[in-house]
Design a protein around this nucleic acid. Sequence first.
DNA 1: CTCCTAGGTTTACTTTTTCAACTCAGGCGC
DNA 2: GCGCCTGAGTTGAAAAAGTAAACCTAGGAG
Lengths: 164, 164
Amino acid sequence: MGGTRRIDPANCSVARALSVVGERWSLLIVREAIDGVTRFNDFRDRLGIAGNLLAARLDSLVAAGVLLRVPYREPGTRQRYEYRLTGRGLDLRPTLLALLEWGDRYLADPEGPSVVVRHHSADDEHACEEPVRISLECAAGHRDLPPSAIHRTPGPGARFVDST
Amino acid sequence: MGGTRRIDPANCSVARALSVVGERWSLLIVREAIDGVTRFNDFRDRLGIAGNLLAARLDSLVAAGVLLRVPYREPGTRQRYEYRLTGRGLDLRPTLLALLEWGDRYLADPEGPSVVVRHHSADDEHACEEPVRISLECAAGHRDLPPSAIHRTPGPGARFVDST
DNA sequence: CTCCTAGGTTTACTTTTTCAACTCAGGCGC
DNA sequence: GCGCCTGAGTTGAAAAAGTAAACCTAGGAG
């Protein structure tokens, strides 16, 4: 017994992240939220998702802190709730952008990508409207690493399992 | 009729990418493949996934070009098949890294991340073993854009739907 | 000629997802 | 006050997906 040890694949932030946003629809809901959607019927109409499932997903995203359930009241109507993206939710943008890039590269519409993500800013200073892409860079400042130039190493919270 | 028009949310590379790698287990299988796993029983043992489901996922990842089914033969055994990551599969690393970063930031083990992705290279020249992270940069050279500094615009393949 | 093993397939069961219909609470016109 | 409309869900039955465990299978070893 006691062969080599390797990082336990179950104790991994990828798996934990996927347990929150890995279900069908979750990331698409976040994408719509990033696009400014906040209301139940708008999510439902834009995604074509079933109402009960949307309710369940919104609940779990709220529980995970990705969305915030906020009461609002439009003049002349009763109080209702909307779902606002939190900081956590905004921080899923790189994930969505990585998926967008991969989809554009390998599964795009023949006419080209349907969505281009561009740089802008509230103040004019940095607004340039140029397309944005994902880049891998290391703490030593090496930029644009190819996917083959990275490897996984155990971190402080690593657990190990024996492999045979 | 004919309100404002917006990008059709169904005609989107994020949705297409998720139709390939968005099912439960798919990205974890890719993660293991990136980690060097190629064989059925290794995937099964490391992930704890049911055999029939693993078979189905491997098939669909092969059909999507993420994995390649390659015959091999170990001396003294019959020919078997293994599943090798393709270029498409490797290009999912940024997606996995984005999920890893998000999970580390918001769902980490109290002791810290279990996995740290580091920079290395086959030739010593660029090897530095520093941690790698995802960065958003635009074509004009602006780097490290915060998630709030980007927005979606229609691309050449965009389709539109009326919104009320 | 039987056993072993990696790589699956089958079967039976449980859970999720889907679709459509229904509810609910308040505001509004009358 | 009464019925109607609307946004935001809930309910329930059917279909699809996932799980666990037993079973199959082809070639090499003994």
